[in-house]
Amino acid sequence: METVQEKNAYQASSQGYYGTFGGAFIPEMLYPNVEELRENYLQIISAPSFKKEYDDLLKNYVGRPTPLYHANRLSEKYGTNIYLKREDLCHTGAHKVNNTIGQILLAQKLGKKRVVAETGAGQHGVATATVCALMDIECIVYMGELDIERQAPNVARMKMLGAEVRPATCGSRTLKDATNEAMRHWINNPVDTHYIIGSVVGPHPYPDMVARFQSVISEEIKWQLKEQTGKENPDYVIACVGGGSNAAGAFYHYLDDLDTKLVAVEAAGQGISSGHSAATTALGTPGVLHGSRTILMQTEDGQVVEPFSISAGLDYPGIGPQHAYLYESGRGTFLSATDEEAVAAAFELTKLEGIIPALETSHALAILNRLGATTSETVVINLSGRGDKDMATYMKYIN
């Protein structure tokens, strides 16, 4: 976990800005909640006692460090050296738990008695419900009605863990709407409730705080890659991006190493120009979404355009403000993959390496044929989650 404020262009300023993106654009009623966090989070997470407890839980509860696996057959197919950062092997099946462990400890330090969260694919919801069960804290998770239908296994897991799952029935009934409902709940319960945001979105300090908790991913990649290859820095780091927490974690310790290319892959849905897409940087413009200035899909008069993706976790109309700045500055390369390409990539990895990836992760895998990496180069892909939750979708493609 990174706890010292970095002095470089790609980290948040003291006011939570990445270039012109970020900040805290919030209703007055939410100001006390956000300000309490902003004033306290760095001091709390920097304390030796916090770091000790956090690191212990990551090791003995989450199962870190996760392996950095050299994918031999995948490497052979694409003519380069491909390593998979196995976040799918974390307890709960995805990277999300790195952040929820950190935030539940933070909530305890702030004296909160209840947690509220939003979830799309359900992985963040499961990770939140898991840490709430661990710490005996009441948990309410908002989830889009459509996502509840297509991610039924994760809904069952959340309920088994003791969480109350509340459907978001407005709009597209997906992640955006679940986030709206969770924020409303937080506004109405400001004193005893902590909102665990699952991605690098929302008002400052959330994008910075979540990125710090997820930075353990790139921290491990550096020493693991050196152990296996003799060098810390790969030529490429690839991750899928909806809001972008797994990408923020995978990129974190490489932001200043300009020789390492940072590749973010968004969901093109049925095609960028199809009207059914979530390729934010291709379709979006600067604006405010869920409390921060970022890039989002919107109409000329500022109404949010409904996103679309086969993947519930990427079905979001914006990206985190740090990613918006990486895109605008050119530090990050932003590509997109269609539903069809993502499913094909998932089956390819499964057949070549015996690993079934989440649909979100499959988007990152889908751009390997466009990367142009050479035989002497090293590619690290953040395998952000496992595919158990997506089996109902995958089954539709099995003859």
Rank of each mutant, 00 (worst) to 15 (best):
A346Y: 01
N399P: 12
S336T: 13
T66P: 05
E28D: 14
R212G: 04
S199Y: 15
L106P: 05
Y54T: 04
I101P: 01
L57Q: 03
I398A: 10
Q11N: 12
A129I: 11
L134G: 00
G202C: 11
Y327C: 13
S218V: 06
N399M: 10
M391K: 11
T130Y: 06
Q322L: 08
D390K: 01
P153A: 12
R184G: 13
P286M: 00
T179P: 01
A342S: 14
T285S: 09
I101H: 02
T294D: 03
H70P: 06
H95W: 10
A133K: 08
A268D: 10
T294P: 06
A282W: 00
E118F: 05
D56F: 10
L89V: 01
G230N: 14
D256E: 13
A344G: 01
L30C: 09
G287A: 04
Q270G: 04
A129R: 02
M395F: 07
L255S: 04
G372V: 03
L326P: 02
T130K: 04
N98R: 13
A345W: 06
G313E: 08
W223T: 11
E340S: 12
N40H: 13
H253F: 10
I319C: 09
L68Q: 11
G271H: 12
A250Q: 07
Y236H: 04
V201C: 09
N72V: 13
H276A: 09
L37N: 05
I104A: 11
T229Y: 04
A342Q: 05
G23R: 01
I148D: 03
L314M: 14
V116P: 04
P286S: 04
Q43H: 10
T378G: 00
K396R: 14
P234A: 03
Y254P: 00
G79V: 00
K59G: 00
E266K: 03
Q15G: 12
N99H: 12
S14W: 13
Y206F: 15
M143P: 04
D88W: 00
T174Y: 03
I140G: 00
A268R: 06
T374N: 08
G271W: 13
G313P: 08
V4I: 15
V141N: 02
L68S: 09
A24L: 04
S245L: 10
A364D: 07
I238P: 00
L262H: 00
